[in-house]
Amino acid sequence: MAMDPFTWSHWYAIGRLEDVPEGGTRKTRLLGIDIVAHRSSGEVTVERVEDHAPLAVQERYGHVWTTFSDEPKPLYDMPEFDEDGRRLVTAGCVTVRCSGLRAVENFLDMAHFPFVHTGILGEEDHAEVEQYCVEMRADVNEVWATKCRFYQPKAAATAEGGQMTHYKYRVPHPFSTILYKTCPIREGAWDLVGLFIQPRDEDLCDVHSFVLVFDEENTDTGLLHFQQTIFLQDRMILENQVPALLPLDPRRELPTRADASSIAYRRWLKENGQSFGVLAEEAVG
């Protein structure tokens, strides 16, 4: 297994809070290691199946998080979770046969909207991706893509008719990504959609996702159906990318300007020494 210190140092979501109810257990797998979560007297414990070694646990952002590291990097901050009036919908976990890194990269990509999310997030007549800004924020070691604009026929469960949607993307963790998009009903506010990916193995992941929005129109189930529709359209793509692991060598998969966020993400992974879920470099000679 291609383990690396960067991968090892993070917290990982392993299920929604509701997935580990009082008295219940959840068996799962993280980074190639079988683990089990259990809740009693309100408190969640997680241990490694092999040797019952207890792991650190925290409950945050609607999910249970754990880590194998003794000195984990602090879980990234999302202050929006504390704002009044927002609704959180957690969409449950969906298993995908691919590197979790491929799922993050797909999430950062606007150019696929017209073809994979046809009639919802994009349409063929408006396929152009305008230039956007990409930055590596050294202070927090995060990748951001900002000033993203894309024409969308139905940008969210609330949206009626097409509009230019404004996006920001954030990668605070190799296996997490968050989208901030202009809220259609509250001036100046951003709605959040994000993925917390649990890499089961290098080429298999559980994708936990959430929506955190100001929305007075849709039911939670309506928001859930919208989110699941989008992600299950992506799943078919993710399972058919060859190879399943993410190549970091830019000669292997050819990017264009629209892929600026993907280029930055791959470079960031490389700089941080990511090897779990990455295609081993072949000798090019």
């Binding site: 997935d19 969409a91 449950g92 939670d220 189930t221």
Partner: peptide, 10 residues
């Protein structure tokens, strides 16, 4: 009438 089949088992 959308039903939360998963994950809510509605």
């Amino acid at each position: 009438e959308p039903v939360d089949f998963y994950p809510g088992k509605q």
